[in-house]
Design a binder for these strands. Sequence first.
DNA 1: AACGTTTTCTTAACCGGTAAAGTCTCTATC
DNA 2: GATAGAGACTTTACCGGTTAAGAAAACGTT
Lengths: 345, 345
Amino acid sequence: MTATPAPRVTIKDVAARAGVSKGAVSLAFNHKPGLSEATRERIFEAARELGWAPNLTARTLAGSRVDVVGLAICRPARLLGLEPFYMEFISGVESVLTEHSCSLLLRLVRTVEEEVALQETWWRGRQIGGSILVDFRTDDPRVAAVERLGMPVVAVGHPSLTGALTSVWTEDATAVTEAVRYLAALGHRRIARVGGAAALGHSSMRTAAFDRTARALELAGAWQVATDYSGEAGARATRSLLTAAPADRPTAIVYDNDIMAVAGLSVAAEMGLGVPDDVSLLAWDDSQLCRLTHPTLSAMSHDVHGFGVEAARTLFGVIMGEGPGSHPVPTPVLTPRGSTAPPKV
Amino acid sequence: MTATPAPRVTIKDVAARAGVSKGAVSLAFNHKPGLSEATRERIFEAARELGWAPNLTARTLAGSRVDVVGLAICRPARLLGLEPFYMEFISGVESVLTEHSCSLLLRLVRTVEEEVALQETWWRGRQIGGSILVDFRTDDPRVAAVERLGMPVVAVGHPSLTGALTSVWTEDATAVTEAVRYLAALGHRRIARVGGAAALGHSSMRTAAFDRTARALELAGAWQVATDYSGEAGARATRSLLTAAPADRPTAIVYDNDIMAVAGLSVAAEMGLGVPDDVSLLAWDDSQLCRLTHPTLSAMSHDVHGFGVEAARTLFGVIMGEGPGSHPVPTPVLTPRGSTAPPKV
DNA sequence: AACGTTTTCTTAACCGGTAAAGTCTCTATC
DNA sequence: GATAGAGACTTTACCGGTTAAGAAAACGTT
């Protein structure tokens, strides 16, 4: 990619027009002391006339601030578009960045290793002032890499996964337990969970919590399926869970996001099973989608937008030099709607 | 935001370690001729040992390529998270950028004017090599601004809105006409459209096309409602359309995106109206969502991911110096599913 | 009037690269 | 044996800002 020729106006032109030196223009534009009001005004006037604004690249190189933060997401591009979670999370991040006139550098990567390399390039190249790291896995290589680089980041994930990095996280295990307890309290004894990719740390934590709770409650049946979070995978998982004989199949299913829950809903309908009469469904994340289906979806609800806001705020804190910290955001809360009820039996 | 102190290794260190000059290192890393294989190898070795990678900021300033493209979206952050369209579009863009080791600089803005200022800052500051412009309105100020700057962009919008800019677009008017004709062919005489914001160019083009087609077909009733694309707005619009007496209300509704169609579906259910028996619904964009509802949603279907791919490819073309051009992508095609049928009457 | 302070502005070095022009060595040619 | 040309580097001048150090003018003091 080459730059196209364009008559760029630089600080020198402004200086010439205002009849001062480059340095003076720099002082004016950084609101630093050492200039009279008159010259200051003259400089701004000249800049306005020429339509000049400081070149951020040069400014960055010269060693001042960087007004970009990075976000690399390690999922296939196609799946990403379907996940309401990320877009909502990003919109929360953006709303904070915008306040700081800061932009988001976004990149999809294929592997964690690729992400490590990318973050290093970004940081070394002063492309970013810090990064938001997501989708932690157990023994995530980013923890060590980032510490080695001394790069400011916020880790979106449970502290047990993010090492000494400042983290923003939700208490997933508690939420899973609450979800299962709720279904059990309704009378369900055979409960399934359609989860995310096993490699993801938060997914495996949910898996463990589900197991623990199922044992503690002495459920008669407990299934877990790993998926890629897509609607298709959710549909497939639901179909295979529900094809068992009525006495052997789950009477309640918990999903790890809401797109899979919506898919599960239509699979139930297609199989002639009533929701919540024959099977109860419980979604996760609770985007607007859950209120748009029929029946409406009960869900473990949390404020994903607010999650993004908190992540961005925390990152700014780290960049400003705050020490490492742990920032839990509210645990998803159960929001019962039309898709959960006691089993008919 | 200030940079944290970190011992950065620069080209000078590598040069010293390899026992050559800065220039030689630069030649090696840009794969330019003029170095023996031996030195080249020695330089890479030194770089590897020191963990050095070229500083992109410096490289950019020195006047070579810029491996970032910009995308500013002018919608409230909260609404954005709910729109499957953008995330899917972005994922298409990303998939092309990734091939070129290029990142996306994303920013939400409040107004077009703010976007003009931002694009100018980005471009002047060499932050980006080009931009993808979306959400064109009539007499969009970006057209003139971008031409003045001589900045490479691809305009996602109908050529009638994007002036002389290279554009990537879908023939919305044709699609609207097809949608209405299809419903009319099914026997519907009272048809409504729940559209997007009136200020958006493509929305007003759809409005005009709907009007024209309604008149041409001499429909007995034709309504249009402008919304902000949110599910809530779609629900509200649907509710108000369907509260009229059975003989006066629409028997078919076309939506401008699929989230509103899903919302419409649940409003119909809540009002005790059968879909498609009492009212037919037709969605737009056709994300996975349309196949997950019950009944499944008929939709004007297009490949949004592919749309993003084409936009990114075209932008690379412009950056490489291709002249202005117009790149239509396939017109959305009607995909009948379970939500449309002849009116019961 | 001489002198120390401020205030205001200029100079010049630097950030970390790129690239055009220059230097030096080695080989081929007549 | 002088000359030219190619190959392998080095030098040096930017890119467009920031910033520490320096200089000139304005001011208050004694």
